[in-house]
């Protein structure tokens, strides 16, 4: 996984709450057996609407998505994270994320930055008034910012310490776990004998 320290890129305002993972990528697009090529399925139903934010020239190359609360609820499909990444997104900002989506983002290297409702509202207004404007996210300082002068938006975001550390270092979770081999072997030795086996 690549290290993530900070990112600045075009922000796309997605004025919707409860953007579930079926909206992010519908089930019919989940049939690939690779981690790439899912960008066509991203928001597939909405992208047939010319008014949809990503169909507007100013937002087409967005890398920071600003969405309403409960982004990524529903299905556990990590394909939702891959579709966002394959499209070019590096960061999603929302007041609240679906649990599994947030976990998947951390594993795959997409930053899920949780902010206050007010920050999302301010970013929406700013990005709609200034199409194509950038949003900056600093993982080290845990801040999100946009704009200049008196209208500048700057606030902190929430991410758990462990995920932040892994993203900053670009660490592979499995390698970390396997470094605790002794603990795993010790646990395996004390498992209850009546637990079921499939083979």
């Amino acid at each position: 996984m690549e290290k993530f320290t900070q990112h600045t890129g075009v922000g796309a305002p997605l004025r919707r709450s409860n953007v579930d993972t079926d909206q992010i990528i519908p089930a019919v697009y989940l049939k690939r057996v690779t981690r790439t090529g899912f960008e066509d399925g991203l928001f597939a139903a909405w992208r047939s609407d010319p008014e949809f934010v990503l169909n507007q020239d100013s937002y087409r190359d967005a890398t920071v998505l600003v969405a309403g609360p409960d982004f990524g609820t529903g299905s556990s499909r990590e394909h939702a994270v891959w579709a966002l990444q394959n499209y070019g997104f590096k960061v999603v900002i929302s007041p609240r994320f679906g649990d599994i989506f947030r976990g998947n983002s951390g594993k795959a290297g997409l930053l899920a930055a949780q902010v206050d409702d007010k920050v999302v509202a301010a970013l929406w207004d700013y990005l709609e008034a200034n199409p194509g404007a950038s949003v900056s996210v600093d993982l080290e300082a845990r801040t999100v910012s946009a704009g200049e002068g008196p209208d500048r938006i700057e606030d902190s975001f929430t991410i758990d310490d462990y995920t932040r550390w892994r993203l900053l270092e670009g660490l592979d979770d499995i390698a970390i776990t396997l470094s605790h081999e002794d603990d795993i072997v010790a646990y395996e030795g004390r498992r209850l004998s009546f637990k079921p086996a499939t083979l």
């Binding site: 556990s76 990590e78 394909h79 599994i100 976990g103 998947n104 594993k107 795959a108 979770d173 499995i174």
Partner: peptide
């Protein structure tokens, strides 16, 4: 439920 990275894990 878990994602695919966790399935691998």
């Amino acid at each position: 439920g878990i994602g695919t990275s966790e399935v691998e894990h």
